[in-house]
Amino acid sequence: MTMDANFKPALRLTGVHANIDQYHILEGVDLVVPKGELTVLLGRNGAGKSTTLRTIMGLTTVKAGQIRFGEQDITGWATPRIARCGIAFVPEHMGVFGQLTVRENLVLAAVSGVMDEGRLAWLLDLFPPLKKFWDRPAGNLSGGQKQMLAIGRAVIEPRELLLIDEPTKGLAPAIINDLADALEQLKAEKVTILLVEQNFAFSRRLGQSVAVMNDGRVVHTGSMADLANDEALQHRLLGLGLGEHQ
């Protein structure tokens, strides 16, 4: 990505190292996430993508390096403090409470404790199944509906940055398309999104910028359009072309 002198990213990781138990997973991650864009984080399994999201969120300890969110150095902050400053995380396992209703899940996710009625109306328009199953236990929802609820929990209040880990995993194509439509709307709202995703068709549709990880480092950054149009680069970075893995 070409950045002018006035460029101010939403998020910047500089030389970030992180361990899980005795394993050194992140080996000096340098990553810039442009404000108001959707950035896709790609890479082979085990490259460190999910650990990068968890480290940004304070769920994995930074051993070295720096994480800046806007003008703030959030390196080493506790997860609740990171959440309060405007970052939300949708983990791969979704993190919904199955015994609570859809409504209760959303109320619990509202940091202020009160849901703004206008914001709620916008969210239910974004994800119509949440309105349909409003008073039903979240554990009774389908996988795709749970994913909608997980994202809904993350954006029930305005967020400056949304971290989403593998949202399409195990979902039917029709549900994946609905999720893509919803994320398009969030993009139109200028929510900054960092997305980890293995579904390359989904990534190609949504991504504006892209970073590719390998062995705990970012080895490529650029526009998604450029990567999508360069099959040789796809094979070199990912081991396959985007069109070969839908």
Results as ranks from 00 to 15, higher is better:
M1T: 10
T2K: 08
T2G: 13
F7T: 15
P9Y: 08
L13N: 06
V16I: 10
H17W: 08
A18F: 08
N19M: 12
I20P: 00
H24W: 06
G28R: 13
G28D: 14
L31F: 07
K35I: 12
N45Q: 08
G46T: 01
K49E: 11
T51I: 08
T52F: 06
L53M: 13
R54D: 09
M57T: 02
M57I: 01
G58V: 09
L59G: 06
R68Y: 05
Q72A: 15
T79F: 06
R81Q: 13
A83S: 12
V90D: 01
V102K: 01
E104M: 03
E104R: 05
N105G: 09
L108W: 02
V111R: 11
S112G: 13
D116T: 05
F127V: 00
L130I: 00
W134F: 08
R136E: 13
G139S: 07
S142Y: 00
K146N: 00
G152K: 09
G152V: 02
R153C: 07
V155P: 02
E160K: 15
I164P: 02
E166D: 05
K169E: 13
K169L: 15
G170H: 00
L171K: 01
I175W: 00
L183F: 04
T192K: 06
I193Y: 12
L194F: 04
Q198D: 08
F200H: 09
A201C: 02
F202D: 11
S203Y: 02
S203L: 05
G207A: 14
S209Y: 08
V210R: 02
T221L: 10
T221S: 14
T221D: 07
G222N: 10
A232M: 03
G239C: 07
L240G: 02
L242N: 11
L242P: 01
H245A: 14
